Amino acid sequence: MRITGFVIETPDTAAAQDAWRRLGTTDRDVRFTPGEGGLVAVVLGVEDVTATARLLQRRGLVGDAGGFDVGGLEWRLAPFVPGAGDTTDLALDHVVVHTGDAERAAADHGARLGLDLRLDRRLEEHGFRGLFFRCGDAVVEIAASTKGADGPDRFGGLAWRTGDLDESRARLAAEGLDVSEVRPGRKPGTRVATVRERTLGTPTLLIEQG
């Protein structure tokens, strides 16, 4: 199971397509649909869509081969094609999901969807709890408040990994994208920058590992 793509709801599909082209994350398939929702679905590549759909139904998720409801969010299934996509300076690092119920989200994404929980991290000084699930070559980060905040699950954005943040930032700036200054990341040893391009349809972060 691997994250192979995303669905973006946007009021201007042409502008969104152009922004994603300039971002240059061509190793993932991004589909666009009219609307205002931004990132509305994550696509999982699997070897056997029918068998995976049957298994997820047996685990209690509602849906079919076209897509499943996971905590109120849509996760779609698609055939996984090894080696699909081009190599660029950006690779998917993680997808963020915000939740008001960390325990339910852990069950949904781990026991039901079948992702591998690698870390349950609490930062009490920031009121943050993060559940980090491995999904192929990327991570699904479930972000929850430790202060009892409630609300429905929602996709919180995408983070893209780069081996040279300064070079990637310069490339995107040359492409006309609005990119913040480089700053230290929350994880020790990392550096990050925010791509502040609204037409991408979702919060977008660049991250360089130490």
Rank of each mutant, 00 (worst) to 15 (best):
L92S: 02
L117A: 08
A106I: 08
R104W: 04
T99L: 03
G83V: 08
W75C: 08
A91T: 15
P82H: 12
D86K: 14
P82S: 12
G110Y: 08
G100H: 06
R76C: 07
L115N: 05
P82L: 11
L119F: 10
D86I: 08
L77H: 04
A84C: 05
L92V: 06
E74L: 15
F80I: 06
A107E: 14
A105R: 03
R76K: 13
D108S: 14
L92P: 00
R112W: 04
V81P: 00
L115D: 06
V70E: 04
G100T: 05
G100L: 03
L90T: 12
D108N: 14
V70F: 11
L92I: 03
T87E: 13
A105Q: 07
G71P: 04
A106N: 12
R112F: 02
A111C: 02
V97W: 06
T88E: 09
A91W: 07
R104N: 11
P82A: 09
H94E: 02
A78T: 14
H94R: 07
D93N: 13
G114F: 00
W75Y: 15
P82I: 13
D93C: 01
L90H: 04
A84T: 13
V81S: 08
L119S: 14
G114E: 07
D108C: 01
T88M: 02
R112K: 15
